[in-house]
């Protein structure tokens, strides 16, 4: 399924864009640490299955790459000088415990694949991922100005989930299988990015930097 591999690749590219951006500009202005922290929680909860069964070398290495890239980004933002000095904690103030972690838990109780602990945790990770970008969008709206490379980052992340939706439709057309949890979570996630992507595409066309 080519769409799915494009999606995985885009996801990986988004981490790379972010790491290169932080290193090049030597700061992490405009980036939400809370969003990165939620992504780490998403991967740690979802990829517990690394200890449960083996799928493929591709699957295992991608999971490890996703986790380690996110850990590395968190390290750069929180601990590595000089990058960590420019972290703007005052603008990164979305109440994520109250709305993201709790909201995703409520959504997972409503829409899930199964009530078994692993399946419920997996469904929670899907909803957590869908909502994870909210602190970042909240922060971008507060500081108004968006560096172009940051738009590339959010752009890559948004398109990645869209390609997963295309891949699920493709899979459904072949096998008739559909996972409502992934599909609904993916749709919510893509809608959250869509507004941003709309301005992103306009700014690409005009060839100028963008501001919200």
């Amino acid at each position: 399924n080519p769409f799915r591999y494009i999606a995985d690749f885009l996801h990986l590219v988004s981490f790379l864009i972010l790491i290169l951006k932080i290193r090049k500009t030597r700061n992490c202005l405009g980036l939400s640490f809370r969003t990165q922290e939620i992504y780490l929680a998403v991967f740690c909860v979802r990829y517990i299955d690394l200890f449960m069964y083996f799928v493929s070398v591709y699957n295992t290495s991608m999971k490890l790459l996703y986790i380690s890239s996110t850990v590395f980004i968190i390290y750069l933002m929180k601990f590595k000088k000089p990058y960590c000095l420019s972290y703007d904690s005052a603008s990164d103030d979305f109440p994520h415990y109250k709305f993201i972690y709790t909201g995703a838990a409520v959504l997972a109780l409503l829409v899930h694949t199964d009530l078994a602990p692993f399946e419920l945790g997996w469904s929670y990770s899907i909803w957590l991922e869908a909502l994870a970008i909210i602190p970042q969008l909240h922060m971008l709206q507060k500081i108004k100005d968006v560096e172009n490379i940051t738009s590339n980052y959010v752009g890559a992340l948004g398109v990645y989930r869209f390609f997963y939706i295309v891949s699920w439709i493709y899979k459904y057309s072949l096998t008739g299988d559909v996972c409502w949890t992934s599909l609904l979570g993916g749709i919510v996630q893509t809608i959250l990015y869509a507004d941003f992507l709309y301005y992103y595409i306009i700014s690409l066309k005009s060839g100028k930097g963008m501001s919200l």
Partner: peptide, 10 residues
Amino acid sequence: KKNKKSKDEL
């Protein structure tokens, strides 16, 4: 309706 998730997705 099937609610079937794929083990190999990331």
